[in-house]
Design a protein around this nucleic acid. Structure first.
Lengths: 202, 202, 202, 202
DNA sequence: CATGAATGAGTTTTCATTCAT
DNA sequence: AATGAATGAAAACTCATTCAT
């Protein structure tokens, strides 16, 4: 009683294999086998292996963004929203491990357009926007929002990887709260200095 | 009377190509061509492509560690030492761009032994040791040193990548000092609370 | 609408070439060419060249055994049966010259399991069984049946080879009858000695 | 304190490897390694691999003939001489196992000239000559001497192989005496029939 | 004589893609 | 839609032979 269509089965199989061994090392034959279909059938649903990769990048990135959005909800406060987004990275890493690995470990040469992934309609944008707003509202100290996004996303991703490799002693909850706390410190606005004695930036 | 041996030429060519297009996409033919040698000669110096990858991992990781050590010198203060190490990541990213890219972007399935790269005799260990010492001396707040190493290294690496992709407005110096400052905030020990009024942790 | 499948064509081509030039000297390219197919197709039907060799050993040995069985029919008398089996070696050598050559001239290092070919479910067993029976019935003189099988099979095979090389003056029929006669003399039971005057076997 | 020259070391190494894995499967690199010399040096002593094969065929065939001659001595009686020659096959098989295997198992395509090996100045000729003489003297029954040589040599060779494979229960001495006895029966002249009662051949 | 790096043509094998059914 | 045999270009790898030292 398969609820999934053949096309979905192919996408699933490909995603898993791409994550496991990398895009190049995964063969169309393996993908077809794991999707329990004929190799030729793959070309009825996709233009070729490249198309499969492209499609997967888009859907997994969108799925990632969806998880982040769901986690952030309509939270308005930049600090709370940012923390929810970070939590979302962990959630996604756990609920979609293959997608997480695929998005992270694919060689740049396979990524359709680097800028898009980072700044396009996809995941990173949510961070950048939140940080931009937080800085302008004074909730965060002034930093380049793209750089700060890079820092925070990289931190969370690395935390997921280290946890997955069994290199961290703490449990899941603790790792997340530690990483959230770290991001808080990273962006915390400095306490307002006594009037008339502010720092000189020049 | 070339100063470089053929073996070195092969390693160089392979490193560049592996970094550019990924290990799988780089062919032995390309490598040989770029090294200006016959394809077969590659197999006199290495057991095969895999051996080439393994060798490169080891030498580039070691080279990375050497740059970090050189940058840190015999600095003893954990704070200063950590900052020097971070500076080292940028230095290495600039002086050995192909090695940097290769170490970062190779698919895990090509990495000989993940644990070794992170905790073995190689780069990451320098960070972990420094943080352990800093925490025990009270210079840093108490954190899991492996997790903190992950954060900081990931931050710096991502900063190098973003800069390389032209996504950052600031100049090199500024990006480095920002990233160093970020790591400082990440690990800064909290000010000692007034006696008798400390926070309750339970 | 060829009656033969591509797989059979490949096996045929390989057998011929293996017999002609030896397993090592026959290339997959030649095999594919002679089978009128693409080289890659060879690897859909077989795991590799080794698999091809293995498969051919099994099928040709079985085919050899089949010819022997057909020739021996349900003949019960050990003498008659043995002579039919010897006749079978010649028949096989003529009807399947490539298979005959392949079985004979392949280097031991290519033979999957020497014992099997000689004593396993295959050709030689038929001889051994017949000789065992003949000895126990007193039709043959007492000899090690394995050794006797070796003698007889080797004799017949060598006769086929010498004939094929044009070194024998006699015609086919004569060579066969001579060889059969030779085997008869080889195994003939000694005439019962007059009672009381027999040789002492100590 | 090597008594052997480099050239001899190369011949030895090649013979062993050719016997073990076949001419094609043995590489010049292996041969050089086993001879403890440089690969290139092989080409100082021989024109190439083919020359090595040719040389080995000649020397091993000659060595085989020498063993046979030594065994036969100046024995004049055809029966005794033939039995000594058969004994010689076993002697050679034991004293020069690699040479024995090399002469036997090399693919025909590597054998310089089949006729020469069988009938030329080499081993087989000794058998043919002895049998021709034995037949003309009435010591042996009338048979094609080439065919009879083939039978007897094949029998002895096969006996050596079976013994080497551990398929024979009897000990060395017994196997030899059995094989000699077999050849005796093979060629024994029929008892002269009473005058006027000769056999009818039709 | 000796060495072993270098060569390049050749080998086995892989794999994305096509196509007849 | 589905199949899986077939294709062929390209991949990794081998190896007899050459050559500078």
């Amino acid at each position: 009683m398969a609820r999934t269509t053949k096309k979905e089965a192919i996408l699933d199989a490909a995603l898993t294999l791409f994550a496991e061994k990398g895009v190049d090392a995964a063969t169309t034959r393996e993908i077809a086998e794991r999707a329990d279909t004929a190799e030729g059938n793959l070309y009825r649903h996709f233009e070729g292996k490249d198309d499969l990769v492209r499609t997967l990048f888009e859907t997994t990135a969108r799925r990632f963004a969806d998880v982040l959005k769901a986690e952030a909800g309509d939270e308005d406060d930049p600090r709370a929203r940012l923390e929810a987004l970070i939590q979302g990275i962990f959630t996604f890493g756990e609920s979609h491990p293959a997608a997480f690995q695929f998005l992270l470990a694919s060689h740049p040469s396979h990524i359709p357009k680097d800028r898009d992934l980072l700044l396009g309609p996809y995941p990173m944008r949510l961070f950048v926007e939140t940080i931009v707003r937080g800085v302008s509202q004074g909730a965060f100290r002034p930093v380049d929002p793209v750089l700060a996004t890079g820092w925070i996303v990289a931190m969370a991703q690395r935390a997921v990887l280290l946890a997955r490799m069994g290199l961290l002693a703490d449990d899941r909850e603790r790792i997340i709260s530690e990483t959230v706390e770290a991001s808080r410190r990273l962006l915390a606005a400095d306490p307002a200095p006594p009037v008339g004695e502010g720092p000189h930036d020049d």
